[in-house]
Each structure stands twice: as structure tokens, then as C-alpha cells.
């Protein structure tokens, strides 16, 4: 039982990171119908922003987190405007290939700029561990969980209860009809990329804090897992994406705890295949499957 709770906490902490990534992935997909392969790389940028600002500008955790969100949000806006917007009416596969190109560009560009060495993320918060009847939980895990919760609720609030959120949802449904309401499509898509990328930036700082090590390719696998999480939750559902992220984190932790570390990534892909076969709408998705 103790091990169970221990793994649960570990799984939820890791799952938080995936949840943040999946949320961004999902809203960006919703509005642009684009699998933004560069999403995981924006998360890597967030981690490096944290690394440099904490080490050299002596930022505290909160300042590093917030500035990483701003910087990554801007990066997302630029990526969209430069790489995706010109292809908005092109065949989707062209945009998809471009997204892969942007991903390579960021990974290789960063490897060139900061070398591909793995670096130790600065310990901006001293780790403390609390013993809850044999189950160990660290202050860092708590920070990750709380930050994720706040950001998820914040995003839900914006999307469901603000004018901007309504515009985002309408553009996600129908560009032309949204234009006829007077909504500026370009602005709305930019805002969505900004929000999604800001969440990725936050996740990057959090993972640095949690795993201590960062490198320019760190975004590849989490990017894919976030996509799986979004599919698992049901594309189009915010709670779904968050729950999907947590489930993927739990699954990975469980597979690892059972001694199959080598298979933890494979387990995630098996989940993807199974959902696509059995539950194409995901756990919280709309019942009808979108025809692409």
C-alpha cells in the first residue's frame, strides 16, 4: 500500500508535466488543426531559460517560471507567424512537415548555441522531503502539482469564461463564421499559441527542477507523450488533456515500478494504439469522430 501511494505521488508529479504539455498541444491543435511537433522543443527552451536566468541572473523560482512562460509564449507566437501562418491554406501535410522542420531547427539550433551537453539544472529550491506515514513527498513535487493545478484552472477560466476564450473556441470551430462575428483570426491564433507555449515553458522549468538535468533534445519524447495524453483525454477537452497527462505519468511510473523501465515509453505508445482502436474520441472527447 505504501509503495502504491509512493508511486501515485511520483506518477502524478511526472504526469503534471505531461498535463501542462498536453493542454498546450491540444489548444494549439484545436485552433490550427496542426500537430505542432515543435511544442516539446518550446518546453526545452523554457528549461534553458530557467537554467540561464537562475544561474546568471539569480532569478528565484517564481520569477524564472513567469518569465519562462512569457518568453516561450513569445516564441510560440513567432513560430506560428513565421512558419505556420503562411501555410494556413496549404495542404495539412505541408504544415506538418514544416512543424517537424521547426522542431529540428530548435533542437539543432540550441545544440549549436549551448552545445548538446546535458546540464544540471540549478537547485533554486532546496529539496525537502516530508514523510507522510512512510510515503515520501518532496516540496518540489508539491510545487509541481500546485503549479499545474493553478495553470490548468487558469486556462480553463480563460477558455470558458472570457471573451478571448469564446473567440478561441469559435475560431477552433469555424474560421469563416468566426470572421463574420468580427473576430480577427490571426490575433486569435496568436493568442492561442502564446497560451499553449507559455504552458510548455512552465513545464520546462518544472521538469528542470524535478529531474535536474536538461539537454537540447529533452523535448522530443515528452512532446510525443503529450500528444498521446491529449488523444487519451480526447482532443478538444481541457480536463481531458489534463487527465490524459496524469494518466500517462502514472502509467509510466507504474511500468517502471514493476521493473520494466525499458518498456515505459513503449507502454505509452501501446496506449495510443489501443485508444485509437477502441476509443477514438478519447476519454472526454466528443462522441463523433472528426473526419480529417
Amino acid at each position: 500500500m505504501q509503495t502504491f501511494f509512493q508511486q501515485l505521488i511520483n506518477g502524478l508529479s511526472l504526469g503534471s508535466i505531461y498535463a501542462l504539455l498536453a493542454l498546450g498541444y491540444m489548444i494549439v491543435y484545436g485552433i490550427s488543426k496542426l500537430l505542432n511537433f515543435a511544442h516539446g522543443d518550446v518546453y526545452m527552451l523554457g528549461a534553458y531559460w530557467g537554467y540561464y536566468t537562475i544561474n546568471y541572473l539569480h532569478f528565484g523560482f517564481i520569477t524564472a517560471l513567469i518569465t519562462a512562460m512569457i518568453v516561450c509564449g513569445l516564441a510560440g507566437v513567432i513560430i506560428e507567424a513565421v512558419a505556420y501562418r503562411p501555410l494556413r491554406n496549404a495542404p495539412r501535410v505541408a504544415a506538418l512537415i514544416t512543424a517537424i522542420g521547426v522542431s529540428f531547427f530548435l533542437e539543432n539550433g540550441m545544440s549549436y548555441l549551448v552545445t548538446s551537453d546535458t546540464r544540471n539544472f540549478p537547485q533554486v529550491i532546496k529539496q525537502k522531503t516530508f514523510d507522510l506515514g512512510g510515503v515520501m513527498i518532496s516540496n518540489i513535487q508539491l510545487i509541481i502539482l500546485v503549479t499545474t493545478l493553478i495553470l490548468t484552472l487558469g486556462l480553463m477560466y480563460i477558455i470558458n469564461y472570457t471573451k478571448t476564450g469564446r473567440a478561441m473556441r469559435s475560431v477552433s470551430t469555424d474560421y469563416d463564421a468566426a470572421s463574420l462575428m468580427g473576430i480577427n483570426i490571426n490575433h486569435t491564433v496568436s493568442i492561442t499559441f502564446a497560451l499553449g507555449s507559455a504552458l510548455a515553458g512552465a513545464a520546462g522549468v518544472l521538469i528542470g527542477l524535478y529531474y535536474n538535468s536538461i539537454d537540447p533534445l529533452m523535448g522530443m519524447t515528452p512532446g510525443i507523450k503529450a500528444f498521446v495524453a491529449a488523444v487519451l483525454g480526447g482532443i478538444g477537452s481541457i480536463p481531458g488533456a489534463a487527465v490524459g497527462g496524469f494518466l500517462i505519468g502514472l502509467l509510466e511510473t507504474a511500468v517502471q515500478a514493476m521493473g520494466f523501465s525499458a518498456f515505459r515509453d513503449a507502454a505509452v505508445y501501446i496506449v495510443l494504439i489501443v485508444i485509437l482502436l477502441v476509443l477514438p474520441g478519447g476519454l472526454f472527447g466528443k462522441k463523433q469522430v472528426e473526419k480529417v
Binding site: K163, R169, S170, T173, M181, G182, I183
Partner: peptide
């Protein structure tokens, strides 16, 4: 706009 309420649709009409 499917997936949005009737009221939200009306609010979008007054977007500007």
C-alpha cells in the same frame, strides 16, 4: 458554433 451554448453564440455576435 457547435459545442458552445446558445447564449455564447449570441455573445459572439456582439463580439466587436
Amino acid at each position: 458554433f457547435a459545442g458552445m451554448t446558445v447564449k455564447e453564440n449570441l455573445q459572439l455576435g456582439a463580439y466587436l
